[in-house]
Design a protein around this nucleic acid. Structure first.
Length: 593
RNA sequence: GCUCUGAUAGUUCAACGGAUAGAACGUGGGUUUCCUAAACCUAAAAUCUGGGUUCGAUUCCCAGUCGGAGUACCA
């Protein structure tokens, strides 16, 4: 049992004995005492004033006296206004550390047969363009969330839904046929996703030019000209052919999609993310139609005279939502229903989490209601893990204006800059070793920079400032880890075993042990609130605290052997916790840097 | 128009309804006789406005100002 729990229960007991009032121990949450006051943990007694009918100071005093008398771990206390600051016996902290450093899986809960199966959908790319900065945030959040849910004892299935069909792919295909001259990834040396992305842009360029031409020649607005575009008509015709299963179109589609997948795989691998099961919209959209027909029969949807199918969501405070167009084709949400059906066939899902940007908040509100009506048991409380947009210092990311930050380019830049900054310091390494360290640091900088921000908020990504190896950054934490590893290497292996009975941790050490002990509850909390940012900020606080400690205390020169062993043990445990916390964020740590 | 969402130092981010609102970058001033100065110490600097709820509000509620997103046959 953690020290917080011990105190909560003891306090509840004390209140009951003193004032005869039952208090739920869960409602009493001791918090870390602020630095400027003496003590380790603080209990706020304001909520008990009604029961005690005394002044805050007197109430705190009485509860404090009771705790000292009844609770072994409590050494002493002081009272400031309504705040009861409790000091825990130093020997108790030494035992806490001892327990943690011998627990290989500290902070992680093992999976059991009763564990819930959580499916997490993330990434969800389109096959007509490479991944960009927005996808980076999505992928990092999704992967990290999966790691956290696993650490909380859930069974986790990571999934990806690839949007591999639709007019946008036809545009790329058409451009490739018209102006591609048979270009392949091999012949051009480009990654497949970039190659296809280039053709998508090329289509748009020609399309725009065509519209302008038509508009000028016929003296009509560009909006009207759009309807007369032959390029767009050709693209539509191609989509129709695709839906009819035309072998030529399907063949090209398959070939080009495979190029893209090869490119995506490379990017995913580099990012360190993966999936247990990938779904493709080309395989799920028909299932969605079926499911909608089924709903129609059950009477949960209705059909208009023009043939389109709708759901009336006004009882739930929303509007009417279209599910099938009047020509019978499916819309975006139809595909999501189909995907849900397949997934539910494949896995006994208890909880579904969709990692998708907040511009789709409404979409998921609707999806939740529709799935619930269609009888999916997890539909009602599916979780839309909604994250904010990534903005750039000079405005929004707009693909048309060329202000998109490409994921591959971004990673290249991060690693390059990391190499430039680190290679000098690693003079004794081989080039390959230096590159490996630069990769870990560069990727760590990027991942930490994005994950430390509250996912729900829009964030600003400044490409220049992100490569900052000082402050609240991944590299700073990695540096702390590497220093500890260096220290431990110097200390060697032939140290005597730690005897906890013989050490009395000082205040700084207690603060660090306390924070290390918090790791377990931080992981649980992060799992409950779906917040990788919580883990990130926890890790930074720990690293910062430890750097200060390193600066203030000798370790290798420490004369008292038992104190030295204790300090090394503390260092080792901190390194282990940093590594474990970073594994939840998908960030690697270097042994040296 | 309607719905959702956000607003905290110069900047980027924190803060279960709790103490004097924390960090980091940048700016000013300092510190290398243990491991790695990629570090540490130190100074100045902020809750959009107006009400309400209460022992206590950055946090909850209402109104306003400004920003972002969505809004029925795009995905």
């Amino acid at each position: 049992m953690s020290i917080e729990n011990i105190l909560s229960q003891a306090t509840a007991q004390a209140v009951k004995e003193l004032y005869g009032v039952e208090v739920d121990p869960q409602s009493i949450v001791p918090q870390a005492t602020r630095k400027e006051f003496e003590g380790n943990l603080t209990i706020v007694v304001f909520p008990f004033l009604r029961a005690s009918r005394k002044a805050p100071e007197a109430t705190a005093q009485e509860i404090g006296d009771k705790l000292v008398a009844c609770c072994d771990a409590v050494e002493k206390f002081n009272v400031i206004k309504g705040f009861l600051n409790i000091s825990i016996k130093p020997s108790f902290w030494a035992q806490v550390l001892d327990g943690i450093c011998h627990d290989e899986n500290y902070g992680f809960v093992a999976e059991t047969p009763e564990s819930q199966l959580v499916m997490i959908e993330y990434s969800s790319p389109n096959t007509n363009k490479p991944l960009h900065l927005g996808h980076v945030r999505n992928n990092l959040l999704g992967y990290s969330l999966a790691q956290i849910m696993k650490a909380c004892g859930n069974k986790v299935v990571k999934t990806n839904i690839v949007n591999d069909r639709g007019i946008h792919i036809c545009k790329s295909m058409l451009a490739w046929l018209k102006w591609g001259n048979g270009a392949t990834p091999e012949s051009t040396g480009k990654k497949g996703d970039h190659l296809i992305g280039d053709f998508y842009v090329l289509f748009d360029k020609h399309y725009k030019a065509e519209i302008k031409e038509i508009a000028q020649a016929q003296g009509i607005t560009e909006e009207e000209a759009e309807k007369k575009s032959t390029l767009m008509q050709e693209a539509r015709a191609m989509l129709k052919k695709w839906e009819q299963g035309d072998p030529e179109v399907r063949g090209l589609w398959e070939k080009m999609n495979n190029w893209v997948y090869a490119g995506f795989d490379e990017t995913y691998k580099r990012m360190g993310v993966d999936f247990d099961k990938i779904y493709y919209e080309s395989q799920t959209y028909l299932e969605g139609k079926e499911k909608v027909e089924e709903g129609l029969e059950k009477g949960v949807f209705y059909r208009k005279e023009d043939g389109s199918v709708w759901a009336d969501l006004t009882p739930d405070g929303l509007d009417h939502k279209i599910l099938l167009r009047s020509d019978g084709t499916s819309v975006y949400i139809t595909q999501d229903i189909g995907t849900a059906k397949l997934r539910y066939q494949d896995f006994p899902i208890d909880k579904m989490i969709y990692v998708v940007g907040n511009e789709q908040n409404y979409h998921f509100q609707v999806l939740s209601l529709l799935l619930d009506r269609l009888g999916f048991k997890w539909g009602k409380d599916l979780i839309h893990f909604s994250y904010g947009m990534v903005e750039l210092p000079n405005g929004k990311m707009k693909s048309r204006e060329g202000t998109v930050v490409d994921a591959d380019d971004l990673m290249d830049k991060m690693v390059e800059d990391a190499f430039a900054l680190s290679s000098e310091k690693l003079a004794d390494m081989t080039l390959d070793e230096k590159r490996e360290v630069a990769r870990i640091i560069g990727m760590g900088a990027l991942k930490y920079f994005i994950l430390k921000v509250d996912p729900r908020k829009n964030m600003l990504f400044n490409p220049e400032e992100s490569i900052d190896f000082n402050g609240n950054t991944g590299p700073f934490i990695q540096y702390t880890y590497a220093r500890i590893r260096s220290l431990l290497r110097k200390a060697g292996d032939d140290l005597p075993a730690l005897n906890v009975a013989n050490v009395v941790p000082n205040d700084k050490e207690i603060a660090i042990i306390q924070r290390v002990a918090d790791f377990a509850s931080t992981v649980v909390e992060a799992g409950k609130t779906y917040s990788p940012a919580l883990i990130a900020n926890y890790t930074y606080e720990l690293a910062k605290e430890f750097n200060q400690y390193y600066h203030d205390y000798s370790i290798l020169k420490e004369e008292d052997e038992n104190v030295k062993v204790f300090r090394l043990e503390l260092s080792r445990t901190v390194a282990a916790v940093i590594k474990r916390a970073f594994s939840l964020l998908g960030i690697e740590v270097p042994e040296r840097m």
